[in-house]
Computed example of a mutant assay.
Amino acid sequence: MAKMLGKDSTCSIARTLEVLGDAWTVLIIREALVAGSTRFQEFRDALGIAPNILSNRLEPLVEKGIFERRVYRESGERSRHEYVLTEEGRGLNVVIAALADWGRACRPQTDGTSPCFTSVDDGAVAELAFVTQGGERLAPGELVARRTEDARLGKS
């Protein structure tokens, strides 16, 4: 039986957290998106994560379609797996970007780093924004959030 988060487990946020789960999982996805990490050792080196914890986080990400496991083999070495983000996994770039924006604004650090998202085509820097259907840009403080059925939003 699938893990259920809270009373309203049908909420899109709860459904997302059932995939993302914890900080290690989010950091693994960050490394794949920002650093292009695909190999087990790359994740270990970048995060300083124990191998058993990394294995325990990667497996569900493969099962849930965030990563695709592919076999590779270095010359003279045994076959190993790499973990390549799927389209669904790459779609989490907006989540990583939102976490980075919030961290920069609300937890600033003079020696901190942040991902910078740019266009593949021309390298133009992209930023997150709330934009109305009419094209008006709104600050987060100008918004309210209301629980709405996914079907009414036209996205599922």
Rank of each mutant, 00 (worst) to 15 (best):
R137S: 02
E142A: 13
L138H: 01
S114P: 02
A145E: 07
G103L: 11
G103R: 12
L128R: 05
G135M: 01
A129N: 10
V144F: 08
E136T: 15
T132S: 06
T113W: 14
A105L: 05
P108N: 06
R147A: 15
E142L: 02
S114L: 07
A126K: 13
C116T: 15
A126S: 12
W102S: 12
D111K: 07
G141M: 00
T118C: 02
E142Q: 14
E142G: 15
P115N: 01
E136S: 06
G123S: 02
E136I: 09
Q109M: 11
S114N: 12
T118E: 07
E127D: 13
A100C: 00
D111W: 08
A100I: 08
A124F: 06
R146G: 07
Q133E: 14
C106S: 12
E136W: 13
P108D: 03
V120R: 15
F117E: 08
G103C: 10
L128K: 08
A126C: 14
A98S: 09
G134M: 09
T110A: 07
R104Y: 02
D111E: 13
T118G: 05
Q133G: 15
V144E: 04
D122F: 10
S119G: 10
P140R: 09
G141W: 03
A124H: 13
C116D: 11
V131D: 00
P108F: 01
R137G: 00
A98V: 12
A124W: 00
D111T: 09
T118W: 05
L128P: 07
R146T: 14
G141D: 01
A124P: 06
P140W: 08
D111P: 12
C116S: 10
G103D: 15
D122G: 01
V125E: 13
T110N: 10
T132F: 00
A145H: 09
A124T: 15
F117D: 10
L128M: 05
P115C: 00
D111C: 11
A124L: 05
T132D: 10
A100F: 09
V131A: 09
F117Y: 11
A139G: 02
G134C: 04
V131M: 01
R137D: 01
P140G: 04
R107M: 02
R146P: 01
D122V: 03
L138C: 05
S119D: 07
F117K: 09
D101A: 04
R147M: 03
R147C: 05
R107I: 07
S119W: 04
A98Q: 07
D111V: 10
G112W: 11
P108M: 01
R104C: 10
A124I: 11
L143Y: 08
A124S: 00
V95R: 04
V131C: 03
P115A: 03
T132E: 06
P140S: 01
V125A: 14
L99G: 11
G134R: 12
D111I: 02
S119A: 06
V125T: 11
T113G: 04
Q109I: 06
R104M: 04
E127T: 14
D101V: 08
L138G: 07
R147Y: 09
G134S: 15
G112Q: 08
C116Q: 12
L143E: 03
Q109K: 09
L138M: 08
F117N: 11
Q109E: 06
G141P: 04
G123A: 03
L99D: 02
D111L: 04
G134Q: 14
R147L: 07
